[in-house]
Design a protein around this nucleic acid. Structure first.
Lengths: 238, 238
DNA sequence: GATTTGTGTGAGCAGTGCTCTCGATTCAGA
DNA sequence: TCTGAATCGAGAGCACTGCTCACACAAATC
């Protein structure tokens, strides 16, 4: 009746344990993760770890994938709890989830949105995981566009090359939204991660005293910029 | 007539040479800079390098400071060549200078705007250097505000905490600009570096085919957002 | 039961940051 | 101009790293 052998189960647990310890080391020692130190914490010799990860970079890649998925889950979960028609609340929930997760896991955030550590390659596996967060933005914009809540704007249209790029992104994320709305949503997306990165990477040090409040204010401004109608004054819906 | 001794001059040259080789290693091998390898390239033994830099982190800090200054110079120089009254051109020149420098020196850009490498501290020296670029933005906004070219907008005012932060930034950079204009300029600034970071760090891979064109389009949109009037249709001024 | 497969050990290699001692060179003051 | 002090590079050495490779032991398969 056991679908997986004892060995396979133990192996999976071992992999999880290694990654967990590695995450702890990441949080304390920074990005220069020591495989030997991880092995030491596990009570085993360094070479044994190589039975589970072919190299240190492979371990890091696994952590990167996990980080993308953790962020994706956090965002999906937070946005999923908001009623579909409350576009503004969905947008804010999404933004806040990104920042909250980043503040709680700064080193893992740095792993995925900071400078690429090794000779940077993005294994195809990570692409799908990385897409989860932006897909949430896509559904918000898509819902707002089809319901008419988010109107088109009168921005100048981009050149052919840029239009092609934006159209492709739109097709994958919010196929029925006007091109110019997608363009604005994209810039808001970039602004969102720019703001978080500035905070996590210390660019706001000695400049901003209340990053959470500033973040909230700026994200509301971005919602206005995209064209997401403001939330109605707190009226209980039940 | 020599103000500095021979030794001091040789020492300064040596420091420059070490930094130059280190920059080359940074460009090829990525962020994990090897002091021994740098020493080898210089034909000296590793311990000799410690006569010039107390530690590897000290070398990196020096490179970080140089990078901030290089970016600052590039931005100042590009923006300085545009006539003062051409606000839109000044804005675009500034944005383009940031991206151009980053594309030309991706690893140095990662050093200053990526994940902080060591147990991240920002030595006070770097703060001044880091301010140079944003100061350019400040003068543009300031000039536009006092000349009336950039009108105030009707954004909701932020809460007291955020207002305090923005007011302090405004005071240091563009003291006569309306609070709400400064807030928008700040978000545009964040968006600018978000866009560049996304490109340099590979977040746009397999998504955007012409990053330069997209960048140009998005930065024009940000100028509109701030309230910088569009450049008049190319009429030769002479 | 024999054999193949997976797992952990320990030694070892090449590389790293950094310290220290030891000659050699340059500088500054008498 | 000579002398003591400061500076500099070389080399050895320590503790650490990623990674490889035989070796022994256990589990899974035949």
């Amino acid at each position: 009746m056991k679908a997986t052998s004892l060995r396979a189960r133990v192996r999976a647990e071992m992999i999880d344990e290694i990654k967990e310890i590695a995450r702890q080391h990441l949080a304390t020692d920074g990005a220069n993760l020591s495989l030997r130190a991880v092995a030491r914490d596990l009570g085993m010799v360094s070479s044994a770890v190589y039975r589970y990860f072919a190299s240190r970079d492979d371990l890091l890649t696994a952590l990167i994938l996990d980080a993308y998925n953790a962020l994706g889950s956090a965002v999906e979960e937070a946005e999923g709890q908001v009623p579909r028609e409350a576009l503004h609340d969905r947008w804010m929930a999404m933004c806040t989830a990104v920042r909250t997760w980043a503040v709680a896991h700064p080193h893992e955030y740095a792993l995925i949105y900071g400078s690429p550590v090794p000779g940077y390659r993005a294994p195809q596996d990570t692409v799908a995981a990385a897409t989860r967060a932006v897909t949430v933005l896509g559904t918000i914009v898509q819902d707002g566009a089809v319901s008419g809540a988010i109107p088109d704007n009168d921005d100048p249209l981009p050149g052919a090359e840029v239009e092609h790029d934006i159209r492709r992104i739109s097709g994958a994320i919010s196929p029925d939204a006007p091109l110019r709305v997608v363009a604005r949503a994209l810039s808001a997306w970039v602004m969102l991660f720019g703001q978080v990165s500035f905070e996590i990477f210390g660019q706001l040090q000695n400049t901003v005293t209340t990053p959470a409040a500033l973040f909230d204010h700026q994200m509301r401004a971005q919602a206005r910029y995209i064209g997401i109608p403001p939330a109605p004054p707190a009226t209980r819906t039940e």
